[in-house]
């Protein structure tokens, strides 16, 4: 079965679209994981950074040592 046939199966019947995952080769699976992982990491880090920025702004701007100690004592 060629790749084109595989995609036709996926296109023709929505119920078996999950088969697409089974039909993917190693490179494609690895590629999808890498893209998803990097986008997730970017979103997570940005949201985390946003929280940190607001937290620091609310507590007043202090030195790195004071800020880190403050974070630690908040825990």
């Amino acid at each position: 079965m060629t790749s084109l046939d595989k995609s036709k199966i996926v296109a023709s019947d929505p119920r078996i679209r999950y088969i697409a995952l089974v039909l993917m080769d190693t490179d494609q699976i690895l590629g999808c994981i890498l893209v998803a992982a990097s986008l997730t990491a970017i979103v997570t880090l940005t949201l985390w950074a946003r929280r940190t920025i607001h937290r620091i702004a609310a507590n007043g701007y202090r030195t790195a040592r004071q800020t880190l100690k403050g974070f630690n004592s908040d825990k």
């Binding site: 920025i53 790195a64 880190l68």
Partner: peptide, 12 residues
């Protein structure tokens, strides 16, 4: 300069 500069963001 961790004890001199005031930081608005500190990376994890």
């Amino acid at each position: 300069m961790a004890d001199e500069l005031n930081y608005g963001f500190i990376m994890p």
